[in-house]
């Protein structure tokens, strides 16, 4: 079974020790709200636990692309197009 960590950076690394900042960078976390995916293994788990005060973690089956994440966040438009206007 495929398992991925979905890591969301919740807290900034400003003012924190270099080791923590570099660990965050290693996980691809550059600023708050950034979401990255990592396969479940010892190395990634250890890095996430190093940043346990700064991140939120979920377990997912497969990673999403960044533009797919953006689409998930987007507010629903409030309407659906049943058919195009020029479909006669």
């Amino acid at each position: 079974m495929n398992m991925w960590f979905r890591v969301t950076q919740k807290r900034s690394v400003i003012g924190l020790p270099k080791r923590l900042r570099e660990t965050a960078l290693a996980l691809g976390l550059k600023k708050r709200g950034r979401i990255t995916y990592h396969p479940v293994n010892r190395e990634n788990a250890g890095q996430i636990l190093t940043l346990k005060e700064l991140v939120e973690v979920q377990i997912v089956d497969k990673p999403l692309e960044r533009h797919q994440e953006t689409l998930l966040k987007r507010r629903p438009s409030g309407y659906t197009v049943e058919k195009p206007a020029n479909s006669q």
């Binding site: 079974m1 398992m3 960590f5 479940v40 293994n41 010892r42 788990a45 996430i48 636990l49 346990k52 991140v55 939120e56 973690v57 979920q58 377990i59």
Partner: peptide, 13 residues
């Protein structure tokens, strides 16, 4: 929650 989630994933594997 972070510790529990990571722990559950590692236990599963």
């Amino acid at each position: 929650n972070v510790i529990a989630t990571v722990g559950a994933a590692l236990n599963a594997k």
